[in-house]
Nucleic acid binder design. Structure first.
Lengths: 119, 119
DNA sequence: CGCGGACATACGCGCATCCGCATATGGGCA
DNA sequence: TGCCCATATGCGGATGCGCGTATGTCCGCG
């Protein structure tokens, strides 16, 4: 039996979140939602250099979020576990709710004092 | 109407993910799942210093993941949007699946060459 | 067998973030 | 009002991450 400590699980859990915590990588995930794409496709889609795109894909791959598959001289990437898409959607919903609620107000304005004053 | 660019949404979306991308903060969220807690409670629960705990809470608060409420001289924190809990659970499921599948093998071993060789 | 295209990786820099430590703020109570 | 407890914030050193540039590796093809 494998013994995995709670700290280790938390660390890995956080690493998965960290892999998602980048605008380019989120965009890549969005691009991969419906079909697999090659590195060049993704690079053009998200407007990043080929090396940078490859690097982002490596991060997602190492965390098991995305998987690679050879297709001739290309490499096609696809989402490895679609539950990640659901999770990303949920977090986007959370953001959308926030934006709808606070309208034009600055997100950075969410400091403590005003929050507590209102109570 | 509010005009929010796609880049801006991606940036904010990534920031929410980034707020979750820390073992201590994930642990805090777990602690807040069923009931609200004071800073001192959380500090003791996760084994972090009071200033560090407060700082983590500030990060979660600024991203709207957690909310603060005065209770006497204490401040009670609770989860602001429970969809975050669902998202975190999903990502934990993803991790659990990976751990179950790969057993004792190192997570870092998920490099490209082996993956492609197997195809 | 050598060439070119597609992709991955190494290196270095600039910048943001994390953490411990010290200190400030703010509310309750004598 | 002044003290104490709970919490928040400022600061500095160390670490990590995103990114551009240059180079390595693999594949298919002539």
């Amino acid at each position: 039996m494998e013994k995995v400590t709670r700290d280790e699980v938390l660390r890995l859990h956080a690493q998965i979140c960290k892999a998602l915590a980048d605008p380019s990588r989120l965009w890549i995930i969005v691009e991969l939602r419906h079909r697999s794409r090659t590195v060049g496709d993704l690079s053009r889609a998200i407007g990043a250099s080929q090396p940078m795109t490859s690097r982002h894909l490596a991060v997602l791959r190492e965390k098991g979020i995305v998987q690679a598959e050879r297709d001739g001289s290309f490499v096609r990437y696809s989402v490895a576990d679609r539950r990640v898409l659901t999770a990303v959607d949920l977090l986007l919903d959370v953001l959308t709710t926030q934006l709808a609620r606070q309208g034009a107000r600055s997100t950075a304005a969410r400091r403590l004092r005003p929050a507590l004053r209102s109570a």
